[in-house]
Design a binder for these strands. Structure first.
Lengths: 125, 125
DNA sequence: CCTTATGTTCAACGTTTATTGAACTATTGC
DNA sequence: GCAATAGTTCAATAAACGTTGAACATAAGG
């Protein structure tokens, strides 16, 4: 396992890549859950998203989200903690992330954003 | 040529589809140009986008933009006039379209949004 | 009616994408 | 050291995507 995964600089973040990244239902769910979690701890680890898809499939989506500059990964022991790159995204594309997240929240049931994710269960306790 | 192409109702417009639609550079350019044109006439016809790609390729992208609910097509003679479905998009995803368009405007040169499009030339006269 | 202009539709193609399971790496705790 | 845990990487697969040119459809102008 390489120590710190590749992240693009703020200026390297491209609009089409971000939009494409967010257009996938699984990745949109991940981003949505990360946004919800910001009110609590701002970070989640990969395992919190088991239930959304298989581990290798999730790793694929995590890599995409990272490489597109949407989220950042921090390695801690055997865990990888992830958070949204809110400031960078806001600097590059003002209002975009919130518009997407709010739209996703509005359509939460339609998008099935809440299904199969440990995070929501934990939060509702 | 069928008289009126298919358009989804406002409620049928889905977030992932819209994001995916906007993630393609050619389609993003079309949307951006339509947005710019709103200050003038709010409508453009297919031919205004020759230069972006071949005709059949453009027809493919137009169809996607239409089927995803991003724009509306009106048939007039041999022409098809298109405009953004601003109100519908705003109702479904508040702030999203403007965030995307403003972000695209900020990155206009990086995205090469202005190249090969008749509209800009016409507008700069 | 014939031609021209505007776009669409279709089939073909090569590329990219999402998904899967198996193998692998790295860290923690006993 | 050994087993368990947490994730990644790889190869394979099927589906979706973008692009192309040729054929088609429709309307307008002479």
């Amino acid at each position: 396992m390489s120590r710190t995964p590749l992240h693009p600089t703020r200026e390297q973040i491209e609009l089409p890549m971000v939009l494409d990244c967010l257009s996938d239902p699984i990745r949109l769910t991940i981003v949505y859950q990360l946004a919800q979690q910001e009110r609590v701890s701002s970070e989640l680890c990969c395992g919190d998203f088991n239930g959304l898809a298989g581990k290798s499939n999730l790793a694929y989506h995590f890599a995409k989200l990272r490489e597109c500059g949407v989220m950042q990964t921090r390695v801690a022991g055997t865990n990888r903690f992830m958070r949204l790159r809110r400031e960078d995204l806001e600097a590059r594309f003002p209002g975009l992330l919130d518009a997407v997240i709010n739209s996703a929240a509005k359509d939460a049931d339609r998008l099935q954003l809440l299904s199969g994710c440990d995070v929501v269960d934990a939060e509702s306790n």
